[in-house]
Amino acid sequence: MNDWLERLSQLPQQWFDSPIAAIALTLGAYFFGIRLFKLMHRPTWCPPMLIAAILIAVTIALLPIGIDDYNRGAGWLMLLLGPATVALAVPLYQQLPQIRALWKPILLTLPLSATLAACYAVIIAATMGAPKEVLASLAPKSVTSPIALGLAEELGGSRALLMGALLTTGVTAIFGVEWLSRVLRIRDPRLIGLALGINGHALGTVRAFEISSAAGAFASLGMSLTGAFTAVVLPLVWHLFY
């Protein structure tokens, strides 16, 4: 009997030796998050991702495994980030005629919007006395995660803090776009999509696809252009100051 209990207590460690348990936990938490989100009548301030992330963190804290065990397994899931980014070519191509007609105003406004997205956060944090490491983790906060991770690494930021910043930014951007577009009476799906993609990266883009496919395509465009622009400009500007 004792022998049996001991084997049972080793089970979590054994599970997390392979990536399967981490992937199952992530997917399970995701669907649970969506379920709870719907039960709570879709609060904008608490997206399913946040519920799911808290659930995973609690599970890891309760089980005799560490965050590193989980990260190792979840890394396999993150491999899908690459193909998922390439898949954005589909909505992008579908909206190509629209985008081609608007390339001039987009090219005029997007770099400025992307710069402001990074500058506001860095300036606010710097005036409140945040150290360089924190600033480096906040600067790429509006950029889609594969680009942002590379950027934070290059600037010397913290990976974990950046991911937290990405989630907070995504949630705030979705709330902000929906609230401010109502206040400003903006109903153009292209404009709402662009604003969601520029400020709210992948989270905003997924939300834009729920509004309409046109909004989603413009969000993908906003997200990828913001990513490309920030990836090139941010390291240059950063090294001027630090």
Partner: peptide, 22 residues
């Protein structure tokens, strides 16, 4: 493409978990 794009939001979640530990 459709299921994969919907997954983009799911894919930042594992990274977010770490923040609670640091």
């Amino acid at each position: 493409s459709q299921p994969l794009i919907a997954m983009l939001a799911l894919l930042i979640m594992p990274g977010v978990v770490e923040i609670f530990f640091v």
